[in-house]
Design a protein around this nucleic acid. Structure first.
Length: 566
RNA sequence: CGGGGCAUAGCGCAGCUUGGUAGCGCGCUUGGUUCGGGACCAAGAGGCCGCAGGUUCAAAUCCUGUUGCCCCGACCA
């Protein structure tokens, strides 16, 4: 490919809408163009990187006995009604009617399609286990796309589905997939991706892991323990609470006019917020009863954990009408529990002498001891982990980090196979539901993540394995006939073995170098008058670690050696 | 869904307060001089000033509405 023919303008200045590095370089380097919110077109450089990423994924999926298939983008509503997700994930599902009036949808994930295919093709245990996967377009009507390709509405995804005759078999396969994923991230050049425990969310099922690239541009919060290696998504992270040591006291009512929030309350009593008991009120999906969560004043409710604890979707309460609670002064002691549901966070367990609301306008209570005064039947862990909390596994200090989720793997149990009545005949002649696993990687997001992890102030630094081209020839002084000849000879010769891009434009050297940096190709050969006078070419790596002159006749040998090391 | 911001040439921006011929830099075209980190000179092309109403002799500018985009939060395989 010649740069003079390559489509995609490269910008000197940062486009106004871009904030994150990958977004900036994808736009500046002429990789992508936006069409609409969360919807992008890709130009050749991005498409080439995509192809290489996909090929690596394909090889690793094949290596764990995957069979590549292709499901339709447009799916009939019946299929999703069968699994129940036509309604349950309605918020991000694009639904429409076809010409005849049938309800249809754009696939946002393909568990249903996979079960639909597999249940009619596989009837005997003897074909088990098996895994099918595809690399294909998904559409999710995200309420908020952001960061260029990091979070989009339409994107390419590799999604894989495995089927097993037993949970044990799934677990064995899950381990293979787990390892395959780490190989994929290593091969595309970001071995630092970590796997973390995660929430199953709308997918259902039991065990799941997310693969995270830790970076400030990420949108997930990850809890890490440097001592024992504990890694978890904030959504399911746990920590050990340091309890206060206090003497019990008699309960006393204190007049606290206009003091409704934790900070001013702690200030008023001159105590740390951990000595307070606060109430957070939620609405629960399909329930008319408000849910009151009591937890220690220094903690926040983790809505994902609360959702799992009450097995229903929860939302912060916004409609205060018809709720019989004394907002600002809600307390666990003396609360009229009629008409409300209550959850006690484990942070309260055993606490003594707390300060909490008196359920009476303008008053708080001092001296509440949980075991003496409240006696909850049970506790739930629904609080957010904080930086510096204690690790439950090893007692070390936890740290928080932002991360981009580049992939995930789930054990789904029989949620879909039972829900959609997929059976096989087992060795004992009985009909059973297979257990299922699913495994996703967002290809475009992975591409963006590689830039997040591998760039400098001039542009992306592509790893050789996914670089749009392997070699970038900067043909300087191309108006000079001899230079031009050397350049084009080199271009043709190397093109037989490598994927080569040559900048044949008659522009200033600086322009060529700046554009080369934006294209981020790992190896660069500079053909210039200066070097050719000595019969040499200059060989530079994009990461600037190597820069040397090579005799014209030695270039192929030199390239072979460098290529082996990259 | 809540909060904030922005829409003027391919990109980055000014002009709007106080209405009066649509501007600058980069990029693009042509010619010339240059030629190792975004060079210089000259001459050009390129605009429904997001869209729709309104006020006015006159609207990029004032008013109303609307749409799109970005950021933060909520949500999220």
């Amino acid at each position: 490919m010649l740069v003079s023919k390559l489509l995609g303008e490269r910008y000197k200045e940062k486009p106004g809408e871009a904030i994150t590095p990958s977004h900036i370089y994808l736009l500046r380097g002429g990789y992508i163009r936006q069409m609409s919110n969360g919807i992008y077109s890709m130009l050749l450089p991005a498409k080439k990187v995509t192809r290489k990423i996909e090929q690596i994924i394909r090889e690793e999926m094949d290596a764990i006995d995957g069979q590549e298939v292709l499901f339709p983008v447009v799916l009939p509503a019946e299929l999703w009604q069968e699994s129940g997700r036509w309604d349950s994930v309605a918020n991000r599902l694009i639904r429409f009617k076809d010409r005849i009036g049938h309800d249809m949808l754009l696939g946002m994930t393909h568990e249903e399609a996979a079960v639909h295919l597999a249940r009619s093709e596989v009837k005997s245990y003897s074909k088990y286990p098996f895994m099918i996967y595809q690399i294909q377009t998904k559409f999710r009507d995200e309420s908020r796309s952001r960061g260029g390709l990091i979070r989009v509405r339409e994107f390419t995804m590799k999604d894989a589905y495995s089927f097993h005759t037993s949970q044990e078999d799934l677990e064995q396969y899950y381990e293979r997939a787990f390892q395959a994923y780490h190989r994929i991230f290593r091969r595309v050049g970001i071995p630092e991706v970590v796997s973390v425990a995660s929430d199953n969310g709308m997918m259902g099922g039991k065990v799941s892991h997310e693969y995270m690239l830790l970076t400030d541009s990420g949108e997930d919060t990850i809890v890490l323990c440097k001592d024992c290696g504990y890694k978890s998504n904030m959504e399911v992270a746990v920590s050990k609470i340091a309890h206060n040591i206090c003497e019990e006291q008699a309960i006393e009512e204190v007049y606290t006019p206009d003091i409704k929030d934790i900070d001013s309350l702690a200030n008023f009593f001159k105590v740390s917020p951990s000595r307070l008991m606060k109430a957070a009120v939620f609405a629960v999906e399909n329930s008319k009863r408000p849910l009151v969560v009591f937890l220690r004043g220094d903690l926040q409710v983790n809505e994902a954990k609360l959702r799992n604890a009450v097995r229903a979707n929860v939302f912060p309460l916004t409609d205060y009408e018809n709720v019989n609670l004394c907002f600002g002064f809600i307390g666990a002691y003396g609360l009229d529990a009629e008409g409300v549901d209550i959850v006690y966070d484990i942070s309260l367990q055993g606490e003594k002498n707390l300060i909490g609301g008196a359920n009476k306008l303008g008053y708080h209570l001092e001296g509440i001891s949980i075991d003496r005064d409240i006696k909850p039947d049970n506790y739930a862990d629904v609080a957010k982990v904080n930086e510096e909390d204690t690790c439950t596994k090893c007692g070390g200090k936890l740290t928080l980090s932002r991360g981009i989720e580049v992939g995930n793997i789930f054990q789904l149990d029989t949620k879909y196979t039972a829900g959609m009545n997929m059976t096989f005949t087992d060795i004992d002649g009985k009909q059973k539901h297979p257990v299922m696993g699913c495994y996703g990687i967002g290809v475009g997001r992975l591409l963006a993540s590689i830039i997040e992890a591998r760039h400098d102030e001039y542009g992306p630094i592509w790893p050789m394995s996914v670089a749009p081209w392997q070699i970038h020839i900067c043909l300087l002084n191309s108006e000079n006939e001899y230079n031009r000849q050397v350049g084009f000879n080199l271009y043709e010769k190397l093109g037989k073995t490598y994927d080569v891009l040559m900048d044949d434009r008659n522009v200033a050297a600086g322009t060529q170098f700046a554009d080369a940096d934006l294209l981020g190709i790992p190896l660069r050969i500079v053909v210039s008058k200066r070097n050719l006078e000595k019969g040499e070419l200059e060989l530079v790596t994009r990461d600037r670690k190597i820069k040397k002159n090579v005799k014209l006749e030695d270039i192929e040998k030199e390239l072979r050696e460098m290529m082996n090391e990259m």
